[in-house]
């Protein structure tokens, strides 16, 4: 939109207001995470009586945070990887081929996004226990069960976005490669994927964020060995005292991987979104 003086003034105050809304909770988390325990037992103070990094050392001892961290990393990274691979394959099929059932496939995949997790949590748990009974493959309480579950959560959005993205890449690129003797799969991997990188990164970030923050299925499908951060963080509050300073320090530590990753790729995210789904 073209800028007038009025627009500039509106922009300054509008952006200031939005920034305050965003920053306030972040400030509260940060400032609480460097307070001594006495400070967080009474009325909230805007500034710590003394700044201490002790909570950042204590969080690892109060609960097995490192274990939760590793569990979350294993589950999230694996789920993201497989989700992206599956989405690229399906999106490539949808964007390049006309085949019977393509529309049905899209319809069914898209509509699964409609339904809340609560609708299939219990049945999925029952299926997992039945698989364990009959085949002996343990899914509930294992990494595998959680990875399989999480990878499907981001699949509909990923397929839908990548289909649009791949469709915008000219076919001639692969056709040229195939004339040079590369197979279909080779053309996809060596020619299409590099061009589609922004879209793939956007989708991977989306998958990662989805899996890293998931609470509902983690609360039922993990046990003490596979507990993820989403559930593990509750341990700071479930004891007789709420270690608010440690809880906030742990929140900072837990958020860092996603935030740092997000900062690096956010440019791609906007580019990917505008080239892909949003037309």
């Amino acid at each position: 939109m073209l800028e007038t003086r009025g627009f500039r003034i509106l922009r300054t105050f509008g952006l200031l207001g939005l920034s305050i809304i965003v920053i306030l909770p972040l400030y509260v988390v940060l400032v609480t995470s460097v307070k001594p325990l006495e400070d967080v037992r009474g009325l909230f103070t805007w500034w710590p009586s003394t700044i201490t990094l002790q909570p950042y050392l204590d969080i690892w001892k109060t609960v097995p945070l490192a274990d939760y961290f590793v569990n979350s990393l294993i589950v999230t990274v694996s789920a993201t990887f497989f989700s992206v691979v599956l989405a690229v394959m399906a999106a490539y099929a949808l964007s390049r081929f006309q085949f019977k059932g393509a529309r049905t496939f899209s319809l069914v995949v898209l509509s699964t996004q409609m339904f809340p997790g609560i609708l299939f949590l219990l049945p999925l748990f029952l299926i997992f226990t039945q698989i364990e009974r009959t085949v002996g493959l343990q899914l509930s309480g294992t990494y595998l069960g959680l990875i399989l579950t999480y990878l499907t959560f981001s699949l509909p959005f990923a397929i839908w976005m990548l289909t649009g993205f791949l469709a915008s890449i000219p076919r001639e690129l692969e056709e040229a490669a195939m004339i040079d003797g590369t197979g279909r799969m080779g053309a996809l991997i060596r020619v299409v994927l590099p061009v589609a990188r922004p879209g793939i990164i956007a989708v991977a970030v989306y998958s990662f964020i989805t899996a890293w923050g998931e609470v509902l299925f983690a609360s039922v499908l993990t046990n003490s060995d596979t507990r993820t951060l989403a559930i593990g963080l509750r341990s700071y509050a479930s004891q007789t005292d709420v270690y608010w300073n440690q809880l906030m320090a742990a929140s900072v530590v837990v958020s860092l991987p996603v935030l740092i990753g997000f900062m690096f790729v956010q440019r791609h995210l906007v580019a990917g979104l505008s080239a892909g789904s949003v037309k």
Binding site: V85, L86, A87, M89, A90, Y92, A93, L94, R96, F97, F99, G101, A102, F105, V108, V109, T112, F115, L119, F120, L122, P123, L124, L126, I127, L148, T149, L151, T152, L155, I159, R184
Partner: peptide, 29 residues
């Protein structure tokens, strides 16, 4: 003609296992 089906097969299997079959089972429950 089989190639696109091979490409969508893994996604289809996962959607069936994690979403569709559990939802049908959910009705039975």
């Amino acid at each position: 003609d089989l190639f696109p089906y091979l490409l969508i097969a893994p996604a289809t299997i996962m959607e069936l296992l994690i979403h569709i079959i559990p939802m049908i089972l959910g009705v039975w429950i």
